[in-house]
């Protein structure tokens, strides 16, 4: 991981140690898939690994897979594995866009257009 100034930047955790050496998630998460954390009882947090806890904190507001990867400074593939596992364990919810044959539907496009015009 290198910053724009080219200096080495220590990631928050060792990428391939935390995924148990796996590089492929059980299912495919798009870069723009949105993730939100599920509310846990406070004592449940002690059962989380440090990286799971970081993701839970970040995703109190909805974040994309790409944002989680960037903010935790881990490669995209590692973020995908971690998030997919957390989704399986019911720690986070995934929100996929409504697609029509791989394209955003017309209603979504109209909403994006009016959203941009309001900016």
């Amino acid at each position: 991981m290198r910053d724009r100034d080219g200096t080495e930047d220590e990631p928050l955790f060792r990428p391939y140690a935390v995924t148990g050496g796996r590089a492929e998630p059980r299912y495919h998460l798009a870069m723009e898939t949105l993730v939100s954390s599920v509310a846990l009882k406070s004592n449940d947090y002690s059962l989380l690994s440090p990286e799971q806890e970081s993701i839970m904190m970040l995703c109190r507001t909805v974040r994309s897979v790409a944002e989680i990867s960037a903010l935790l400074r881990v490669p995209l593939g590692v973020a995908r594995v971690l998030i997919a596992d957390m989704a399986d364990e019911g720690l986070v919810r995934l929100h996929m866009p409504q697609l029509n044959q791989g394209q955003p539907d017309l209603n979504l496009l109209e909403r994006v257009l009016s959203g941009l015009r309001r900016l």
Binding site: R2, M31, V112, G115
Partner: peptide
């Protein structure tokens, strides 16, 4: 090789986020 990709984010509505990659 590490491939980097820059992106930004625009919230357009409470439940609508546009990402620019």
């Amino acid at each position: 090789t590490t491939v980097a990709m820059d992106f930004g984010r625009l919230s357009l509505d409470q439940d609508l986020i546009l990402y620019l990659f």
